[in-house]
Design a protein around this nucleic acid. Structure first.
Lengths: 351, 351
DNA sequence: TGCAATCTTCAAAGCGATTTGAGGGGGAAA
DNA sequence: TTTCCCCCTCAAATCGCTTTGAAGATTGCA
């Protein structure tokens, strides 16, 4: 293994000069620089990144820590997110360090990352309404960005989508179509965006004078299985929902299956709308009945977050890096007028 | 930031002793060790990992480099793989470093990883039939493991599935059902498993005296879109295939869509079989017609590979770490007897 | 009490880069 | 030719930890 010293000796120069030459400092002569660069190539020199990190105090790596308990990571959205993130981070010569920790040990792992010098910054995803990780990061003034945000006004860099706008629009669409019995299939309790979406949904419902009994709001993982199970159960109740709003297109896929088993027509007997993060291998426009969605490509998030974290590390004020992306409402064939004779609202007020 | 020296001074000990105490060396007294551990906790000491790495020469990190050109990373299988890998690596206190590089720069990035000291080992996936990365790794005697293998007999640690067995079984099943016009939707050319599967398919076809014109074998990305496009095109040809073998369940999903558009009954007019890596959010048994598959959970791979790489790094002989996992054939309803009147084989021999 | 045999602990030398403060050499102006 | 400056280059300190070889403190046995 060739070290900086080897190159220096080979050229009869000092390590200092070689280091400067290689790192493009101005005070080294042009011909010397060329000689150095050439020699480095010739000897196959690669700087030892651990030594570099120790000397500079920076690692060129950002970290993400996932919860191993829930299946956040097997969420297909995650792949798409990761892909965009890495690709974009590569532009700034930043690598990504992956780590998994049980829910209960999140904080200690964050602490270790922050003080070990292994990473220059963190990327936090799926913030909770009262997120301890974010508190810890803020307390130590450690560089980080968040995918989503845990409150309306926050003192950190984030990229979020307009969850409120999306679910308000979705709910309004259904009500305007005459639906009065609308069920919500949401994600797990505690996640900030889950609460945000639910608030928008309930507010809009209430504004129009309706309500939703709590058994028609579910909180669980967002996959096909759950969508199927929950929708199947709800469709057996009387009176049943005439529409479903889903927090994920995977849930909608499960709802489709439940409806087809119940011999109910999608977009006729029952309408379905979902939020779509746009996964390349799961095009909602190609569902057996094209799905009406609120849409924001999750890839946008990763690109922005990659740029943000490198800026934050470089010293930019995090509060100047806050993006809330608007959400498109794309009406397709899974939503239609409330079926005849099914206009009666649920009786009991929600909760 | 507290350093080792701080802890040492605080206790009136030398850094050497503190280091030993913290790292569990035997030559430090029990009471001293307790004092040290307590003080470290008290002062909130975390070792600087960069300094540790520089001193020990090891990083506790393994790397993966993805090709940014193709969409390997957005492949949903990847998520599942990654999830298992990280979780398992965490058992050995190993982190994962992510990196993306264009196809053309793969080798230089591998070189940099190998000589920068940033990682202790590499995980290679989707090997090509003549894989330069593997050559480079072998040449430098750098620790690595491969998901798949680029040839039958190889001198490195790998976890592979029995691609040959799987595609032989799938092809036999269809032929035994009376199918003589079988199309193959495969992955991109160059990947080792793609070639392996195709060889098994063609061999089995030939053994039974049939053949496949080249226009009924496709090589492309393995997603729903491609499956749909290719199947739709093939179904328009005369005579059309009576069965499809797909290298991925996503392709099969596309085939389903094409068949439903062509008003062909799945498992009746046309049979479909695919290899299924078992993704939690895409259960082939819940497809509109439950899909006949050859099956191996991709999560198995990640678990084994995680264990392997830590052993290889620890010095185990890589050739003693080679696993080829058998594949299950799960017959469901997407495969049925060749339809009446469609028994005539294709005329021209393949290629 | 004395002396060897163990335990413990220490000082110092790396690991391979970066970076500071200082010094040598070459060119231009006088 | 001398003098002054600017450009380059260098030696040495530093980053925080591990690890070696040796010294100091204990202990056991005679």
């Amino acid at each position: 293994m060739t070290t900086l010293k080897d190159v220096a000796q080979y050229l009869g120069l000092s390590p200092a000069t070689v280091s400067r030459a290689l790192n493009g400092f101005p005070e080294v002569g042009a011909k010397t620089r060329d000689r150095v660069v050439e020699a480095a190539r010739e000897l196959g020199y690669t700087p030892n990144s651990n030594a570099q990190r120790l000397a500079t105090g920076r690692s060129g790596v950002v970290g993400m820590i996932f919860r191993s308990a829930n299946n956040m990571m097997v969420d297909p959205h995650f792949t798409e997110f990761l892909s965009g993130l890495c690709t974009r981070l590569a532009n700034s010569d930043i690598d990504l360090m992956f780590h998994v920790a049980p829910s209960g040990q999140q904080l200690s792992h964050y602490a270790r990352f922050m003080s070990s010098g292994g990473v220059d910054g963190m990327i936090v995803s799926a913030p909770e309404t009262d997120d301890q990780r974010i508190e810890a990061l803020l307390a130590r003034n450690f560089p980080f960005v968040v995918h989503g945000r845990h409150a309306q006004q926050v003192p950190y860099a984030y990229f979020d989508i307009d969850n409120d706008g999306a679910f308000t629009a979705a709910t309004r669409l259904l009500i305007d179509l005459g639906h009065t019995r609308i069920a919500l299939l949401n994600g797990p309790h505690g996640l900030a965006y889950v609460e945000q979406r639910e608030r928008a949904f309930l507010r809009t419902i209430a504004e129009r004078g309706f309500s939703v009994p709590s058994q028609f709001i579910s909180h669980d993982e967002m996959d096909e299985e759950v969508g199927h199970a929950r929708a199947a159960a709800m469709l057996k109740m009387t009176p049943r929902p005439t529409a479903f709003i889903c927090s994920s297109s995977l849930l909608a896929l499960g709802v489709y299956r439940a409806q087809s088993e119940a011999k109910l027509e999608i977009g006729g007997d029952v309408s379905v709308i979902a939020h779509d993060d746009v996964l390349p291998h799961m095009r909602t426009e190609h569902f057996s009945v094209p799905l009406t969605v609120t849409r924001t490509p999750i890839r946008d998030a990763s690109v922005h977050l990659a740029d943000m974290i490198s800026k934050v590390i470089a010293g930019t004020d995090p509060t100047s890096l806050q993006i809330t992306e608007p959400v498109d409402l794309v009406v397709r064939e899974s939503t239609g007028p409330a079926p005849e004779g099914e206009e009666t609202p649920w009786q009991k007020p929600a909760n």
